[in-house]
Amino acid sequence: MDLEIGGKRALVLGASRGLGMEIAKSLAKEGVIVFAAARSQDKITAWSQGMENVHALQLDLGKLDDVDRVVDGLLADGGVDIIVNNSGGPPPGTAEKADRASWLAHFEAMAANLFHLNTRLLPVMKEQGWGRIISITSSGVEQPIPNLALSNGIRAAVVGWSKTLANEVAADGITVNVVMPGRIHTQRVDELDAAAAKRTESDVAEVAAKSRATIPAGRYGKPEEFADVVTFLASVRAGYVTGSRIRIDGGSIKSI
């Protein structure tokens, strides 16, 4: 299937590793010009060697000046057609123990600055009558994950923003969707399993086995399986999909 996005320009956030990296690779394989951004620009440069249509950018979403610097550069070069909003996850912890400073700091990096970035890049999409905005959240926005209070709460705000924006810009040819990963086997999932093992004084392999046992598919997802769904949503073929939440979780969320 020709996704018809060769030559389009995409900004992929959090692209130094994990889901962001795989999404950037998947888009690049379709001929998209990818601006891959993360705090660790060197890591992007390392994995993108030989990929002429991938450009590494240094960006710390927690710093507004960084966000504006990157956006200024993209706008001076014509803007982008596709935005993949992907932020790093906050540390695990309970809602009871999460303090105000933690909420504010992580909300700024995972929501407020992200909204600002999209707002600044949106006018170019509206002018050209085409655009794709895809936000990576978590299955926790639909079925809260224990001990991930900051993530559950802040990512839910991204869902509300996405649905609101989708309704506002649909007539401009711009789609806005949310993709919810379940247990996709990335470094982040390994870190969460390790944290759970430490908290429960268990073996990491035992924690991972118990986690896989709760997934109907019986395994963790592959990062490339996730990335290919995102790439389809970024395509011309997905032009009638907007305002949606798409699960990629092997069936782990229990609700319909």
Rank of each mutant, 00 (worst) to 15 (best):
A37V: 07
S16F: 03
I145A: 04
S138A: 10
K63G: 01
D65I: 05
F35R: 10
L165C: 05
I253E: 04
A195I: 02
T214A: 14
I253Y: 02
A101Q: 15
G93K: 03
V34M: 10
G173N: 06
D81Y: 08
R247C: 05
L192Y: 00
A10H: 05
R69G: 03
I256A: 02
R132Q: 03
E4F: 04
I248P: 01
D172C: 10
G93Q: 02
R219V: 01
A109E: 03
W161Q: 14
I134R: 11
M51P: 00
D60P: 02
K254S: 11
S244Q: 11
W47N: 04
E108F: 06
G182P: 01
R39S: 08
L59P: 00
T45A: 10
G78N: 11
N152H: 13
V12W: 06
W130M: 08
N152M: 12
N152F: 12
L114C: 05
L122M: 13
S139R: 11
E108A: 12
G251H: 02
P123A: 15
L3C: 10
S87T: 14
V229L: 15
V34G: 02
A15T: 01
I33E: 14
M180N: 08
R183T: 08
Y240R: 07
G89H: 11
T231A: 12
G79V: 09
N85H: 15
I256Y: 09
R100A: 08
V229E: 00
A197T: 06
R69W: 02
K254D: 07
G62Y: 10
K97V: 07
L74N: 05
I33V: 14
A170R: 10
A98W: 01
D60W: 06
P146A: 05
S235M: 11
V67E: 01
D68R: 15
A38E: 06
W47G: 03
A170Y: 09
G14A: 08
R212C: 02
V141S: 01
G89L: 15
H106M: 13
A156I: 05
V179S: 01
I184K: 07
S40L: 10
W161Y: 15
G14H: 02
E22C: 08
K25F: 00
I145T: 14
P146R: 04
G250Q: 05
M180G: 00
L19K: 03
L74F: 11
G239L: 06
G79S: 10
Q187H: 08
L59D: 05
T200A: 09
S138C: 03
Q187S: 13
D66Y: 09
G239K: 12
V159K: 09
M21Y: 01
F115D: 10
L59Y: 05
V230D: 03
K210W: 01
T45P: 00
V207G: 03
R212I: 05
D193N: 14
A234Q: 05
H185A: 13
R183L: 15
A171P: 00
G62K: 09
S162T: 11
I253D: 06
D203F: 06
M21W: 02
A196P: 01
T200K: 07
A209F: 01
